[in-house]
Design a protein around this nucleic acid. Structure first.
Lengths: 241, 241
DNA sequence: CGACGATGTTTGTTATAACAAACAACAAAA
DNA sequence: TTTTGTTGTTTGTTATAACAAACATCGTCG
């Protein structure tokens, strides 16, 4: 114990700048979260603690913490024997998810429309909107998805209600793995109505009803398209490869 | 290892009925959850792993899992050094919570009104309603809270959307510790309009707008009363002791 | 007397080992 | 051939110990 204290003091002496060390389970959590959102895990895959620990190069303890978190958030399902599995998304679950998302994101858009906002914030959203359109034209779908996500949450952040944003983020995580491989085909289809620009315009105009209507329409249409991709068992699967 | 296998077979021989063994961290999670909902933890209390483990009579490992879950759900806040603390509730956070609750619970009531239900389900809800009224008259406020909670979630379950119920439950957990010591004084005040019976009546009649309106009114009025109890710093504290 | 620094204590984090239940593979008997 | 019992393996669960950072305590020096 003496040695520990001495070594500690020595470290404080030599290391001048203090680096806040983030826990390993936080890093593991972030990596798993991103992998899920990007759809790098096939639905139905069982994530075993030891294999994940080997991938991360740590023991199973931090991995266990990360998985526990994800299961608590509903991002990972817990299968038999409390194993964590990447959830499938059936047509029914997608329908439920759509109802909750419409309620939450519609409300967030409404609240955003009832507030006044900085010009800088609005300008940045407009820029992102034009970026998204050029990304669609260039078929850069993977980076489009990133901008698409940031645009939506940029609007929700304007509600000024962090709890609302946090809850919405949770819902996105649940449908994340599926969205990643079905949206790309979808966005190229809708050249007709761009609910994104309409929603932003309504928010700027202070039109709460319009803002909610456009966001709900955006979510509903995407969900309707996704539902049409379900197979005979009601499961949503990757179309080609 | 041979001994282990043999002992296992012996156990299977003698123990005829299989008892599904629930993990320790699940029990710890449930106990902490109930304690939070019942308001047995003072807001601001730091929950240390070792003290909780000593209370439960286990090691810190299952307790850590339970606390990790609760923090991931947003039920417990994580203070400095990743310690888990029972969250305070400010007037602003209560306001945010009210917005989200109105959106979610209003939508659940609406969905419930759009469906047909068994007579047994409706009768049970009516019985609970009368039980609640007699509990108020008898000033049995602690058991009233339990029935009140079950009545609300009975309605939300009628929406047929488990995800919605789950998300609402999460919101209740966040305001649980505060509700427990401010609602009792509130319920005795409102002998005027009983939004509960009105909401149930609307659901039975298939009146979606009415169901949503009554539930939202119920939530809003309670939140308004709670907000009036906040002190000068915006914090909600236990009134007397 | 007050400020600074050393030291013990508390507490979350991580690794490791032992354990138990479920699964898989294989061999033996009907 | 099919079924059943056995055995090895996988995997989540739990306890324990070592570790590190923050906090608290107290003595010493200005």
């Amino acid at each position: 114990m003496r040695d520990v204290a001495r070594r500690d003091t020595e470290r404080c002496m030599t290391a001048l700048k203090r680096i806040e060390r983030e826990p390993l389970w936080d890093l593991a959590h972030a990596q798993l979260r991103d992998a899920l959102l990007a759809g790098r895990f096939e639905p139905g895959t069982v994530l075993t603690l030891r294999s994940l620990a080997e991938s991360f190069g740590t023991s199973i303890t931090p991995v266990r913490d990360a998985v526990t978190r994800l299961v608590a958030q509903g991002v990972l399902q817990q299968g038999p024997r409390n194993s964590a599995i990447v959830p499938h998304l059936s047509r029914g679950e997608l329908s439920d998810l759509t109802v909750v998302r419409c309620a939450l994101e519609g409300r967030a858009s409404r609240e955003a429309a009832l507030r006044r906002h900085d010009d800088a914030t609005l300008r940045k959203l407009k820029e992102r909107l034009s970026t998204m359109q050029s990304l669609i034209a260039a078929r850069k779908l993977e980076s489009y998805l990133e901008h698409h996500r940031k645009f939506h949450f940029g609007i929700y952040a304007m509600s000024g209600i962090p709890l609302l944003v946090e809850t919405i983020e949770n819902m996105w995580l649940r449908c994340g793995p599926v969205l990643s491989f079905v949206i790309p085909e979808y966005v190229v289809l809708l050249k007709g109505w761009d609910h994104h620009t309409a929603a932003l315009k309504a928010i700027i105009a202070g039109d709460a009803d319009g803002a909610e209507r456009e966001i709900v329409a955006d979510i509903s249409e995407a969900a309707h398209y996704l539902a049409s991709l379900a197979d005979s068992t009601g499961q949503l699967r990757r179309p080609s490869g």
